[in-house]
């Protein structure tokens, strides 16, 4: 369920790093807690994200949750699929429903995040 090669935050985001580019999403646990997701608000291309600060939000019918960036960097790509099909975030949060890809400015930040095993322990699964 939780890919071993991803790193996780206490705010229930994940990041996977490949060649200096981090792909960021929310976890399966997060989508389950939120319920039916109806809207995803994401940053603009080129926006600068700082780790542990909010860069967007996810909405269900009656709740809004901020999304925090696990790492710092510049937004290279935004998942446009979510604009028309926010439900994908419920269906495949670790896969097609990634949120943004960023160029990491401080790759070492990843080291302070949780492993899949630690995250599972954290959510008490």
């Amino acid at each position: 369920m939780y890919p071993e090669n991803y790193s996780y935050t206490k705010e229930h985001e994940w990041v996977s790093v490949e060649g200096g580019v981090g792909t960021i999403g929310i976890t399966h646990h997060a989508q389950k807690e939120l319920g039916d997701i109806v809207y995803v608000d994401l940053p603009k291309l080129g926006a600068a994200l700082a780790s542990h600060t909010t860069f967007g939000s996810v909405e269900s019918v009656k709740a809004v949750s901020d999304i925090y960036s696990p790492v710092s960097g510049e937004v290279l790509e935004v998942n446009t699929l979510l604009a028309t099909q926010p439900e994908k975030l419920n269906e495949d949060p670790h896969g097609v429903a990634w949120l943004v890809k960023i160029k990491l400015s401080a790759p070492d930040e990843v080291k302070s995040l949780m492993s899949a095993a630690d995250y599972l322990k954290y959510i008490g699964a």
Binding site: Y39, E59, V61, K62, A63, V64
Partner: peptide
């Protein structure tokens, strides 16, 4: 689209 409104988003 109630998430725009005060009863959910409060000060935001």
């Amino acid at each position: 689209l109630s998430t725009r409104e005060q009863h959910i988003r409060r000060e935001k």
